[in-house]
Design a binder for these strands. Sequence first.
DNA 1: TGTATGCGTTATGTATACAATAACGGAGAG
DNA 2: CTCTCCGTTATTGTATACATAACGCATACA
Lengths: 250, 250
Amino acid sequence: MAEREVDRSVSQTVKAQLALRDQILSGALRPGERISELQAVETTGASRTPVRMALVRLEEEGLLEAIPSGGFMVKAFSERDISDSIELRGTLEGLAARFAAERGVSARELEPLKECLAAIDELLRQVPISIEAFSSYVTLNARFHALLTELSRSPPLIRQIDRASALPFASPSGFVMAQSALPEAQQILIIGQEHHRVVIDAIENREGARAEAIMREHARLAVRNLRLALRNRTHLDLLPALALIKSATD
Amino acid sequence: MAEREVDRSVSQTVKAQLALRDQILSGALRPGERISELQAVETTGASRTPVRMALVRLEEEGLLEAIPSGGFMVKAFSERDISDSIELRGTLEGLAARFAAERGVSARELEPLKECLAAIDELLRQVPISIEAFSSYVTLNARFHALLTELSRSPPLIRQIDRASALPFASPSGFVMAQSALPEAQQILIIGQEHHRVVIDAIENREGARAEAIMREHARLAVRNLRLALRNRTHLDLLPALALIKSATD
DNA sequence: TGTATGCGTTATGTATACAATAACGGAGAG
DNA sequence: CTCTCCGTTATTGTATACATAACGCATACA
């Protein structure tokens, strides 16, 4: 078939990677399910070579698992895998905060962080928070975490944090959304914002240990809340990525 | 050419990946240098498809960097990148030690760690240590760290530590070899062994915080020693992987 | 002499054909 | 009726051909 429609604006590899990731996170492909290359070729519109490159990348990202006899399957995660991933990310972010504090950060570099902080404050003034505001919160929070990571000025650490965030439930947006399933959601967001404020203060005052400690606490709080949220399964449709949890945890 | 000699014992992709990694770590390909696919095809004996898969994997490993206009180049690291990578790994291992301590480890699981410890003690009894003994030490030390990581029983964490060790200088073998360049090498090994002993003790007594702290100290020591070793550039041929340091640090 | 443009060469991105292997099903024997 | 073996089929692994974009060089014009 020569009349394959080709979108030349992005590479076929990237297109296939995005499409497959969507399929996985949306739950169209279930955990444990084998991904057929041919099927992926049909659904993504790319040919086998870019599809295979995308599969390799997704495996490295942690969303897929190589099958010894060949091919890939969608990875399945236990509840503990998820909480460990969040704690792992918190530990890495703690190190980033410490690096930032110890190495010093100019007022100008801290500016965007403070803007984020102020914007979130504004959102949280609403009681109860609206859906739109919550959506903005998710974006701003992710931005805050990304900026904080950057402050470490450590490419290897930034890279590792990015990798740790590849798992959707371990990303800032992911765990905020998981927490939102709880009745105390608003209170949780306010506490989280307090953490944000403290870490900036610690970095400004070059208190590495405090900066690190608060980010770890931030993550531990997220873990506790995730545990609670997983009890209230009814709300979990808020986090489609949780489709990745293996059903064995039921 | 149909008469390409093919080794069917391992996949061509793996073969290419190993061959390319060797070329990078041995310094045959210099940092910043662009890797030509065609050239890689010739040197590895695989065809372009497996070579490309290997390149993608090596990029994800952190040894290569994608060039925006296409293709890959050998990544270059600054001295700080290296020390950050070691500290990063130490932080992750600290978390692993804490998990092990908090979650509890049976005596049977601790057995192989203790065997490692005893074997290293045996080696360190030699003063000065022989080349062969040092080589055994490198292996045993890597084994100790791998076993400790496993004790965390956290697949996401184990995975992340493996990734952090992909950079050769950040692996246990890597930094031990870097330290060996120092005149105080033997003393350093003895201190490291003391750390190993403490972490096992902490895990046995379920002291998570102490187990974590000692692993982080272990890494910080390695960083300090690496800094010293980098001053004594004359000895650095002991660590071929240091070919990855960008010459800008001269 | 310097710069800009155009063409040619080379390398990468993509598609597909071919080969090998593993999984699955059916048939036959115990 | 069940287990095993063989054949078929489907899917992955590999190779290569083709398309396209980038780089460099040369030439011409300012």
